[in-house]
Design a protein around this nucleic acid. Structure first.
Length: 425
RNA sequence: GGAGAGGUGGCUGAGUGGUUGAAAGCGGCUCCCUGCUAAGGAGUUACAGGAGGUAACUUUUGUCGAGGGUUCGAAUCCCUCCCUCUCCGCCA
C-alpha cells in the first residue's frame, strides 16, 4: 500500500512513479477523496473535543448540586445530544470515505525502484549474470519423459484425484521431493534463518496484507464456507506472522525460512506448460523472508538473492540472474531479481526463484513497524524462493540425465536422497 | 459441534454509568543514602494517530479483545464477532 499522505500531498509524483510500470494510473479521484477525508477528520476531532468537555461539565454539575433534572442540566443535555447526532452523521460519512480510499489505494501497486531497469514487459528484463555450463546437446529428454521412464510421478491418475495440473509423486520422485525440501531447509537454517511451518490456509486480511487481494482474487483458491484461502505462497503467512506489531529494532533483521505447499489457480495459462512439473495448481516451495530496517533493505536484497543462489550452486544447476524491468515487476515489489535455471530439453532458462524487495509496501498494508529514533516507522520486507521444489526437481532430472536413462543426483543432495543415482527400480 | 468461564497497561490484578487513561503491586527509569554485597528512601513511568514547530516540545483525538448500539457521558449496560481456558462429543 502506498502512503496515503503522499497521495494527498503530492499526487503528481505518485502518478509519475507509478507510470514507470508502463501503465497509466490515474489517481486524481483518490486524491480528492483523501482531501475530503482529511477535512472530515479535522471536523470530527473538533466536535468531539467540545462534546467531551460538555459531558465533563454535566458530570461536575450533578456531583455538585445532586440535582439530576434541573432546567440547566436539561438544556445542557439537549446540546450534548445535538453534538452526538452531528458527530455520528460525520462518522458515517467518514466510514464510507475510509473504505473508498482504502479500497482504491489497495489496488495501486508499489513504486518501482529507481535502480530497476525501465521497460515494458519481460522482454526488457536484464540478464545480470550466468553461472555454470548449460547442457546444449540436442537429444536430451524432457523432465516429464524422464519422470515417466523412471516412474517418478503421475499426472494421468492425478486428474482422477483432482483435475489437470495436479501431480502425484511416486517412489523415488516423492523421496527426491522430500530430500530437496529437507536439504534447502537445513541449508538456510544453518545460514541464519529461523524455520517456520505456517498454516497453509490464510484469511482474506493476510492476503490483502501481502498484496494478493483485492486485485488478484482470481489467482487463489477460496474455501466456500469460511473466510479462508489456500495460500499461494508462504510469503502470505510469513508477512501476516508479524501483522500489527511494532518490532524492536534490536531484533532486526528477522530472517525466516518456511516450507509450504502453494496453491495457484493459474487462470489464463491454459495450454501453457501442460506437461511435467513446471506449472501446477499445487507445488512445494521453500521460501525466504526478511523483516528489516528500512535503511538496509537494498543490501538485504542482495543477500537474500545470494542465499537463494547458494542452493542452485550447491546443486550444481546452471542458472542466470535477471533484473526484472519496471513493466514486469510484481504488484508488491519495487525491485525483483529472478533466478532462472537452465532446462536443457527446452534450451531455455526458467524461473525457479523470485527475490523481491517490497520496501514498506507490505509492512504498511499489514501494519508492521519498528522504532527508529523514537518514531514508529514501517519496516521493509523482502521475500525470495529458496527454491521452488518442483522446478528444482525438473532441473535436476534434465541436467543430471545420463545416456543410459538414469539421473545423477548432485553430491550435496546424496545424504538426503540416500543414493547418487536415480535409475529404474 | 454442545455446555460453561474468561479477555483490563511491560506483567499480576482492582474497578458495574460521571472530571477514570484507569487503584494497588511487580517490573523499568532518575535521584538520594549506604557502598563489599544485600537492602532502604524519594520521584517518575501506557500506547497509537492527527495538527503545529528545525527541535526539546505544544495541542488534540482514540484506545480496557474487535466492531456496532444505548447515553450528555461507557472499562462498566445491550448486540454481533474473534480469541483463550475447562468439561463433553468427534477426531489425525
Amino acid at each position: 500500500m502506498l502512503d496515503q499522505k503522499l497521495i494527498r500531498e503530492n499526487p503528481t509524483s505518485v502518478e509519475k512513479n507509478l507510470s514507470l510500470r508502463g501503465k497509466v494510473y490515474r489517481i486524481s479521484e483518490i486524491h480528492e477523496l483523501t482531501i475530503k477525508k482529511k477535512n472530515i477528520d479535522i471536523e470530527i476531532a473538533s466536535l468531539q473535543s467540545k462534546s467531551k468537555r460538555l459531558s465533563k461539565l454535566i458530570g461536575q454539575e450533578i456531583s455538585k448540586s445532586k440535582n439530576y433534572d434541573s432546567q440547566e442540566l436539561i438544556s445542557l443535555k439537549k446540546k450534548g445530544n445535538e453534538f452526538r447526532i452531528k458527530i455520528s452523521e460525520l462518522e458515517e460519512k467518514k466510514r464510507i470515505l475510509d473504505k473508498e480510499v482504502d479500497d482504491e489505494i489497495c489496488k495501486l501497486p508499489n513504486f518501482p525502484s529507481n535502480d530497476a531497469p525501465i521497460g515494458k514487459d519481460e522482454n526488457d528484463n536484464v540478464q545480470v549474470k550466468t553461472w555454470g555450463d548449460p547442457l546444449t546437446e540436442d537429444d536430451l529428454k524432457s523432465h516429464w519423459q524422464i519422470g515417466e521412464n523412471l516412474n517418478l510421478f503421475d499426472s494421468i491418475n492425478s486428474t482422477k484425484i483432482s483435475k489437470s495440473r495436479f501431480i502425484t509423486l511416486i517412489g523415488n520422485g516423492a523421496r527426491l521431493e522430500r530430500a530437496l525440501i529437507n536439504f534447502m531447509l537445513d541449508m538456510h537454517s544453518k545460514n541464519g534463518y529461523l524455520e517456520l511451518m505456517p498454516p497453509a490456509l490464510v484469511n482474506s486480511e493476510s492476503l490483502k496484507g501481502s498484496g494478493q487481494l483485492p486485485k488478484f482474487s482470481n489467482e487463489s483458491f477460496k474455501c466456500s464456507n469460511d473466510d479462508l484461502w489456500l495460500s499461494p505462497t508462504a510469503e502470505v503467512p510469513l508477512t501476516a506472522f508479524h501483522k500489527n506489531e511494532i518490532i524492536d529494532s534490536k531484533q532486526l533483521p528477522l530472517k525466516y525460512v518456511a516450507y509450504s505447499p502453494c496453491f495457484r489457480r493459474e487462470a489464463g495459462s491454459y495450454g501453457r506448460d501442460t506437461k511435467g512439473l513446471i506449472r501446477l495448481h499445487q507445488f512445494n516451495k521453500v521460501e525466504l523472508y526478511w523483516f528489516c530496517d528500512p535503511s538496509k533493505s537494498t543490501e538485504a536484497h542482495e543477500k537474500i538473492t545470494s542465499d537463494a543462489e547458494s542452493i542452485l550452486k550447491k546443486l550444481n544447476l546452471p542458472y542466470r540472474l535477471v533484473d526484472i524491468c519496471t513493466g514486469d515487476l510484481g504488484f508488491s515489489s519495487s525491485r525483483t531479481f529472478d533466478l532462472e535455471v537452465w532446462l536443457p530439453s527446452s534450451k531455455c532458462y526458467r524461473e525457479i526463484s523470485s527475490c523481491s524487495n517490497c520496501l514498506d509496501f507490505q509492512a504498511r498494508r499489514s501494519s508492521i513497524r519498528t522504532k527508529i529514533d523514537k518514531k514508529n516507522t514501517y519496516l521493509h520486507t523482502l521475500n525470495g524462493s529458496g527454491l521452488a521444489i518442483g522446478r528444482t526437481m525438473a532441473a535436476i532430472l534434465e541436467n543430471g540425465q545420463l545416456k543410459d536413462g538414469s539421473v545423477r543426483i548432485p553430491d550435496a543432495l546424496v545424504p538426503y536422497f540416500g543414493s547418487n543415482l536415480l535409475k529404474t527400480a
